[in-house]
Computed example of a mutant assay.
Amino acid sequence: MHSNKVGRNIDRKFQRALLAAFTLFCGLAASGCHRKPSANGLVEFRIGGVAVVNPDQPTASEPEPSGALGYAIHTGGFQRELRKAGFAYEGLVGYPRTAASLLGLGSGQVQVASTGDSPAVLSRARGDKQRAIWIGLPTGDIWVVGRKDGPQSIRELSGRKVGVLFGSTAHYIMRRAAEVEGVPGISYAQLEPAVALHALKRGDIDAYAASQAVTAETWRARFGLPIIAKIGTEHPELQGVSVMTARSDFLTAHPTFAGAFWRGLKTGIDAIRKDPDAYYRWVSDKTGVPIATVRATAAERYADTPFPKEGVDALQRLLAFQIRTGLANSSFSVADWATGPTLSAGADNVRK
């Protein structure tokens, strides 16, 4: 079992190893660092993120991201909008966790990263040369899974051990929930989901804050592990925000990219709104998760602007908390960090 200090050291070593590998990759393939127009005149780009994969058919199709972006790529609307503006989507580079995609962004292996809120904000606070090109609404509900015959609520976790991915959205929201509910003395252990599942089944940890609600629901259905908290449901102010960032030098060289990216992403949002059941079927097919579970855990709420005030404000609160707790040491304006269309009075125009 890892202590907090050991977990952090492992996490730092993992990040350094990834960064070294990505830097080497760019040294061997410089075209991945500085995207130039292809033979057909289009500027190529790649996106880094966690791929949606069916574990029973891992190589059945091209890797795609989740959510509206993945669906926009699946329907082809994303590619069409980007090509109109002179850009060619060259595919997704899959990473084991979203924080790693930011290392790929920094090395130049990808030009865009799809991540959760905490990794993106911490990256910017470290001074990484990237800018937000899309900020979602607060919709990510972090579900906490307990061991059998263990604590039944967050309030019962005082003095107990909880598994998380350090620096993740789930880590941030779990700590905020403990603070809001006045629960001291929780010990956190750095654990990947697959390792955490075995730790829960053995009783080595008392709970795990799952980054994906579908993971928690799957563990409940398959292994009988209890869900002891749905933090976003119990505390609506504590919900995760998806973020898309792009390399600053890429945006400077191609100032029309952010607007084109939003128009492409919007095709996926519109398709989900038009036929949500078709979207749920796609997610189920891509992941192997039963469609009933997909429906039960879906949180598909989008704004009609790339930078909704609700999402921007949530990230500013996240940054303030990370500074106050020592995880970040540099403040910045989230609104200024965002690039592309300007924040407007219509930022709160939200539809299901």
Rank of each mutant, 00 (worst) to 15 (best):
T23R: 10
D336F: 01
I269S: 10
A253S: 12
S107W: 04
E237K: 04
P63Y: 00
T293K: 05
G240Q: 10
L122N: 05
L343H: 08
Y95I: 02
D11G: 03
N329P: 11
V183C: 10
C26A: 15
D348I: 00
K84F: 14
I269L: 09
V195I: 00
H2Y: 09
T59H: 10
K286M: 11
G91H: 10
S248F: 06
I272G: 02
T297P: 05
D56G: 15
L238C: 13
P290Q: 03
Q152W: 06
Q322T: 03
M1A: 12
D206V: 00
R176E: 11
K5G: 13
V164K: 01
V164A: 03
A229H: 12
S248I: 06
W143E: 09
D304H: 03
V289C: 01
G232C: 03
V43S: 05
C26M: 15
R147G: 07
K148C: 13
P255E: 11
I227W: 01
K286D: 10
A299P: 09
A209W: 04
V214C: 02
K13M: 13
A229I: 02
R247H: 09
A210L: 11
P184W: 00
D249P: 13
Q109P: 01
D149C: 02
D11I: 00
E179N: 09
H235M: 12
T287I: 08
G48I: 08
P306A: 13
R222G: 13
G159F: 00
A194V: 12
R273N: 08
S331M: 04
L157R: 05
F45N: 03
V334T: 07
V50R: 13
A132S: 09
D128N: 13
G67N: 14
Q239I: 00
L165I: 08
S66I: 00
R351W: 06
Y302F: 13
Q239G: 03
G311W: 03
A177W: 07
A20Q: 07
A113Y: 10
R124W: 06
L197N: 08
A278Y: 14
D206Y: 10
G104E: 06
D277M: 06
E234W: 00
K161H: 12
G91L: 05
G311T: 02
